[in-house]
């Protein structure tokens, strides 16, 4: 058992009926690291994250903090200290911002006040609007709420599924700056992105997912320099 690895994935496969979305991929994330997985639409990025979070069944082995995960109940995974910020944010539009955050704290209610002020420290705009319905927030603010909500569980590992999706470039910069801060505070990040430049600049290590398989991996800087990535994903 290797306690040094935060998240270890071996031969992961995800199938939906006859479709094989993830074809036996292996990778790992070290504690305190930022790893990013880039890839085109339909490559299997979301399926990978959903499998790790226990939201879809998988074959292969997933270890969180060295322990093999055998459950397919997402709520169990959160208790192990891993949270997924889903694609499209999954904000509860008809609940207030604070209620959204309280739901994020479901598995960790003791430290609610402390965690709430930490999250409000990261996202001051959420504090101003805490009693407003979450549906009234702009796209960027909703993404902040989704990240803040996941942080309420005090998870040590955060998976983010396309946090920049649908956001203006300025907001993307803002979100990624906050993600860097969150990582500096000790949270391990696995970020899935189509916005490859931003993600690769932020990441310590990265991999490229194509048609359900990992076809390239290396440091973020290495992938940024890779000719294939430059032509296919960076538009150079």
């Amino acid at each position: 058992m290797n306690q040094a690895i935060a998240l270890d994935v071996k031969d992961l496969e995800v199938r939906y009926g006859g479709i094989q979305a993830v074809r036996g991929i292996s990778f790992s994330v070290n504690p305190g690291e930022i790893v990013t997985m880039i890839g085109a639409n339909g490559a299997g990025k979301s399926s990978t994250l959903r499998a790790i979070a226990g939201a879809v069944p998988h074959a292969g082995t997933i270890r969180i903090g060295g322990e093999v995960i055998r459950t397919d109940h997402p709520e169990e995974i959160v208790r192990r200290g891993l949270s997924l910020v889903p694609e499209g944010r999954g904000i509860f539009a008809n609940l207030s911002i604070e209620e959204n955050l309280r739901l994020g704290a479901w598995t960790n209610r003791e430290a609610y006040d402390v965690n709430l002020s930490k999250v409000f420290g990261l996202f001051p705009r959420l504090r101003e609007r805490r009693n407003q319905m979450a549906g009234t927030l702009s796209g960027g603010e909703q993404q902040m709420l989704a990240v803040g909500r996941a942080l309420m569980s005090r998870s040590k590992i955060l998976l983010l599924d396309e946090p920049s999706m649908g956001l203006a470039p300025k907001l993307v910069l803002e979100i990624f700056a906050i993600l860097r801060d969150i990582n500096k505070a000790g949270v391990t990040l696995l970020i899935v992105e189509q916005n490859a430049v931003m993600a690769l600049r932020l990441a310590h290590r990265a991999c490229l997912l194509e048609l359900g398989s990992i076809t390239l991996s290396g440091s973020g800087a290495e992938l940024l320099e890779n000719p294939k990535i430059r032509s296919a994903y960076l538009g150079h």
Binding site: P74, P86, G90, A150
Partner: peptide, 13 residues
């Protein structure tokens, strides 16, 4: 919350 998005509710634990 379940009324608006059940899948995400489980993801929160």
């Amino acid at each position: 919350a379940i009324a608006s998005d059940r899948a995400t509710v489980s993801l929160l634990g």
